[in-house]
Simulated assay, not measured.
Amino acid sequence: MFRDLSRPIETGMPTYPGDPDVTLSPDATHEADGYATSELRTGTHAGTHVDAPRHTLPEGETIDAIGAGQFAFDARLVDLRPLEPREPIRPRALPDSNALDADALDAAADLLVLRTGWAAHWGTDRYRDHPYLTPAAAKRCRELGVGVGLDTFGPDPTPTGSAAETGPVRDDEPDGTPANADEPDGTPAHDVLLNDSLPIVENLCALDGLPTRFRLYAFPLRLRGGDGSPVRAVAEWER
């Protein structure tokens, strides 16, 4: 079976704060020209996309330098729900190495698809207040040799006014510390993963009902010197 896990590219779609707006508009038309073409204006990180190491690392590999086969993943779905806005995802929420070992039928996973539930908030302000990976969780992924796919803007917190607000108090936090009291600045989770050329696929959707293990294809445009690219992300699995 196949399922499209990508967001449609369309005018006015949500973008990461500060990124270019997306417009898709007619250029030539059947009525005027006898054929149709369109003009697309977009950033490289609009909609469902993959990051290249060059995204956050000045000397990192560019998207066109990465072999096409590296965008075909053996994925493992990790359902993290329920999560609170801007809740940190810590290492203990991720599978250990035993859970990622290959069995008789499956290849070892090389991508964790983290289902936070935030796809339901696409197109709203709440989408910016997504959960995020702590640097320690990103290091756990690096130790396991796996990249991440997310139904959010990315593995790091997205800047928003909510970042300064008091977050939910968790039972596992010492002394009633708010969950986002130590919310990191910048892109530490990106940096940990991309420094080891581990893939990051962002803004996935339609994760409901997926099996625990599946193949994920997320082929980027071959943008010369690119720091990332929109993709058509497609899951494949056996019935």
Results as ranks from 00 to 15, higher is better:
residue 85 P to Q: 07
residue 30 H to N: 10
residue 75 A to Y: 00
residue 93 A to K: 08
residue 111 L to G: 11
residue 31 E to D: 13
residue 5 L to A: 04
residue 18 G to M: 08
residue 21 D to R: 13
residue 110 D to R: 00
residue 167 G to R: 10
residue 29 T to P: 08
residue 111 L to K: 07
residue 11 T to S: 13
residue 183 E to K: 09
residue 145 G to D: 13
residue 98 N to I: 09
residue 9 I to N: 08
residue 76 R to K: 11
residue 132 Y to Q: 06
residue 150 L to P: 00
residue 44 T to D: 12
residue 149 G to C: 02
residue 137 A to G: 09
residue 142 R to M: 09
residue 170 R to K: 12
residue 235 A to P: 09
residue 75 A to R: 00
residue 15 T to Q: 11
residue 112 L to S: 12
residue 105 L to K: 05
residue 189 A to K: 01
residue 60 G to F: 01
residue 209 G to S: 07
residue 32 A to P: 05
residue 89 I to K: 12
residue 68 A to Q: 09
residue 184 P to F: 11
residue 131 P to S: 03
residue 60 G to S: 08
residue 28 A to T: 14
residue 199 P to Q: 15
residue 211 P to I: 03
residue 183 E to N: 01
residue 16 Y to F: 15
residue 75 A to G: 03
residue 124 T to M: 02
residue 160 T to H: 15
residue 130 H to P: 02
residue 4 D to S: 15
residue 179 A to E: 11
residue 65 A to E: 15
residue 28 A to C: 10
residue 122 W to Q: 00
residue 41 R to W: 07
residue 55 H to Q: 09
residue 110 D to N: 15
residue 183 E to W: 13
residue 47 G to W: 01
residue 121 H to W: 06
residue 202 E to D: 15
residue 99 A to Y: 06
residue 164 A to D: 15
residue 84 E to C: 06
residue 198 L to K: 04
residue 18 G to D: 11
residue 159 P to D: 15
residue 41 R to N: 05
residue 214 F to N: 04
residue 170 R to D: 09
residue 238 E to Y: 06
residue 22 V to W: 07
residue 164 A to L: 14
residue 130 H to Y: 08
residue 3 R to E: 03
residue 161 G to H: 13
residue 29 T to N: 04
residue 211 P to H: 02
residue 49 H to E: 03
residue 154 G to I: 02
residue 210 L to Y: 01
residue 21 D to W: 15
residue 171 D to K: 14
residue 21 D to S: 15
residue 210 L to E: 05
residue 60 G to N: 13
residue 234 V to E: 03
residue 170 R to N: 14
residue 144 L to W: 03
residue 34 G to M: 01
residue 40 L to V: 11
residue 57 L to G: 01
residue 119 A to W: 03
residue 61 E to C: 04
residue 5 L to I: 09
residue 178 P to C: 07
residue 156 D to H: 00
residue 50 V to M: 03
residue 125 D to P: 14
residue 130 H to T: 12
residue 31 E to G: 13
residue 37 T to K: 08
residue 237 W to C: 11
residue 119 A to M: 06
residue 32 A to C: 10
residue 124 T to I: 02
residue 17 P to K: 05
residue 21 D to F: 11
residue 50 V to Q: 07
residue 79 D to P: 00
residue 35 Y to A: 14
residue 172 D to K: 15
residue 100 L to V: 06
residue 113 V to I: 12
residue 210 L to G: 05
residue 215 R to E: 06
residue 14 P to D: 11
residue 78 V to Y: 02
